[in-house]
Design a protein around this nucleic acid. Structure first.
Lengths: 201, 201
DNA sequence: CCGTTTATTGGACGCGGTCTAATAACGACC
DNA sequence: GGTCGTTATTAGACCGCGTCCAATAAACGG
């Protein structure tokens, strides 16, 4: 898909990982809200503008581990067998996505919630991701149900199911080292929602 | 609770309503993202700082009509009869809250979503409200369930139920003039979620 | 050595939001 | 009327995020 070496043009001096690590150190020292983009860039030995070449916004740093995982949802839904009931397909896709997430990668977004200051940016960036995935689930349900747009249920399914999944992720993240795998939390939370909608459809 | 006339100190020169109306005009002319706080304050004949005396942030303007409604959720939950099943109480409380919302008051947050520019601020402010109400629902469910029974479900109930309600509100808002009452959308969306969790509890 | 391509950089700008100190408009009290 | 306490408004400065643009640096192939 993308070559590791561009072969042309000036080589990159920095990398996403470098900036992530610099940010991680500063977040531990000063919390997320307490560190500026300038500080992150400075510690990474790079200009402030270069930071924005690698990350679209400061809050993207909160989701570095999670973004790759949630991007898989569309693929898992697309891979669902057409013979499965809709809600089963949605639930299984979410559980598979959760299974694919490495157990030791807990995004800052879910750990620094309780620490001071994070809330504003966190909630901004969080809902953006929520809405993006929600559109995918909604489209999937609408296609499977063959219904016209503007109906309540597909949108409700998307919001409710992802809400339950988000709750699961939050509990998983705050459960500490002794936590069970993320997928078990997700299954527990998403299962009842899907069962309820399966009855209603 | 609060006297209409403070009786003491300098009288207010402006009011929330004045600023709301100034903002509404500008939003129609320039969209939400295209208007600055300075412009709103200027049109209301008031200083920029005064705007922040009435609204905590620019994005609060997106929810002027909705904030009063969703603040009622805690009261409705508190008024729930102790003999009702938990999920019934949650669902009925949400439907009652939706019923209390005036039919002609559609918040900017739900109408200007599709218009250009709004998304960032909108999503930021939206999740803040979502989280606030979610904490209320979660506490209610935890109290009813007697606490320490696996932390996942109460949080999942809160997120899923409010997600469904948010979906209902979004569909209601975009349904145009011929829409049914908000409460019917909410009941349709929230019902299956509550039924599913009622089975699981 | 010369173009091309890409990464990096500095500088400026706009905007939202916070803070502080000063001032203005009221009622109450003497 | 004058003074005090209270509250609203205001100007001013400040910070940080995010965007934009023009300039430069580092690689490549010719």
């Amino acid at each position: 898909m993308n070559d590791p070496t561009p072969h042309v043009g000036r080589p990159r001096r920095s990398s996403k990982r470098t900036l992530e690590e610099a940010a991680a150190e500063l977040f531990l020292e000063q919390t997320y809200a307490g560190t500026t983009v300038d500080q992150i860039a400075a510690r990474a030995g790079v200009s402030r503008n270069t930071f924005f070449n690698y990350f679209g916004s400061k809050s993207d740093l909160l989701w570095v581990d999670f973004d790759e995982t949630i991007e898989r949802l569309a693929d898992e839904l697309a891979a669902a067998g057409a013979e499965d009931p809709v809600m089963d397909a949605v639930r299984d896709a979410l559980v598979r996505v959760a299974t694919s997430h490495p157990d030791d990668r807990v995004p800052w977004a879910l750990t620094q919630v309780d620490l001071m200051g994070t809330r504003d940016d966190l909630e901004a960036s969080g809902l953006r991701r929520f809405m993006k995935q929600s559109a995918i689930v909604q489209a999937f349900v609408e296609r499977r149900l063959g219904g016209a747009a503007g109906l309540v249920l597909p949108q409700a399914v998307a919001f409710a199911v992802l809400g339950a999944a988000a709750a699961a992720a939050g509990v998983w993240a705050s459960a500490g080292v002794g936590r069970r795998p993320l997928a078990t939390y997700v299954a527990e939370a998403v299962g009842p929602v899907c069962a309820g909608f399966a009855q209603a459809l």
